Computed example of a mutant assay.
Amino acid sequence: MNEKLSKEVKFLKIYSFVITALLLTLFYLVLQPQTNNSLEELTVERINVVEKNGDLKLVISNSERQHNGIINGAVLPERERPAGLIFFNSFGDECGGLVYDGNENEAGMVLSVDKFRDDQVMQVQYMENTKNKKRKYGLQLWDYPQENSVEARNKRYKEIQNIQDKEAVKKAYAQMKEEGLVAENRLFLGKNFNKDVGLFINDEKGNPRIKLYIDEANTAKLEFLDEKGEPVQGGATN
């Protein structure tokens, strides 16, 4: 009996030693810093990149799970957005992004830069009507005449969506433009849908003023225009 008990005690000691050694080895491996992790392939619908404190800095997402955007700390209403990357600044606001898509009707890709606490003011863009093969691509700049107007602008856009009369909608947009709530096109450098390639500069009200381009007929042109779009005397050359 004593011999049997002695064997069992010896077995338990060995068993305890082995289990303890395995657990210590496991804890050691878990607690070691992982510096060489690598993946050959990762399939996800969305990735949120955050700072150590949890602040959102970048969203990489498909179209269905794309972030709505944040301006002045307020999440924008739900809307359809293409797949791509959305960037966020230290205030938590969206500050630009890269989105893209393409189908049987249209295709495009844009890299946008947003004004601080407002909407986009610059884009490198490519847009195409894939049915008629018309394309526009280049550098686009906008201005917002009224500073810090994003909340008022979005409120007015929401009100206009409830207007049924088309003429009333046009008047409402015209009023917004008059008040400086609408983004004004200031410059485009690239190729337009009409196949003109060049530099197109507008004034602060969005009126075309300078055009330096080559048209579809391969004719070089330089045009200076007044606020009404009429050629300035002596300011146009072909």
Rank of each mutant, 00 (worst) to 15 (best):
I47H: 00
V49Y: 07
V50K: 13
K52C: 02
N53Q: 03
N53C: 02
G54C: 06
D55V: 03
D55E: 10
D55C: 01
L56S: 10
L56M: 11
K57Q: 14
L58A: 05
L58E: 06
L58G: 04
V59D: 00
S61F: 01
E64K: 15
E64W: 12
R65V: 01
R65W: 02
Q66D: 02
Q66L: 00
Q66T: 01
H67K: 08
H67S: 12
N68T: 10
I70D: 00
I70N: 01
I71R: 00
I71K: 01
N72T: 06
N72K: 14
G73Y: 05
G73W: 05
G73Q: 04
V75R: 10
V75A: 10
L76D: 01
P77I: 07
P77Y: 07
P77D: 09
P77M: 09
E78R: 13
E78S: 14
E78Q: 15
E78H: 12
R79E: 15
E80W: 12
E80H: 10
E80L: 12
E80P: 06
E80Q: 13
R81I: 12
R81A: 11
A83P: 02
G84F: 01
G84L: 03
L85A: 10
L85G: 08
L85S: 07
I86V: 12
F87L: 13
F87G: 08
F87S: 11
F87I: 06
F88S: 00
N89T: 03
N89E: 03
S90Y: 09
S90D: 14
F91Q: 15
G92S: 09
G92V: 04
D93I: 00
E94T: 12
E94A: 04
C95I: 06
G96A: 08
G97Y: 04
G97W: 03
G97L: 07
L98G: 08
V99H: 11
Y100P: 02
Y100L: 14
Y100G: 10
D101T: 10
D101M: 11
D101V: 04
D101H: 14
D101L: 11
N103M: 10
N103K: 13
E106G: 10
E106F: 08
A107S: 15
A107I: 10
A107R: 14
G108P: 05
G108C: 09
V110D: 03
V110E: 06
L111W: 14
L111H: 13
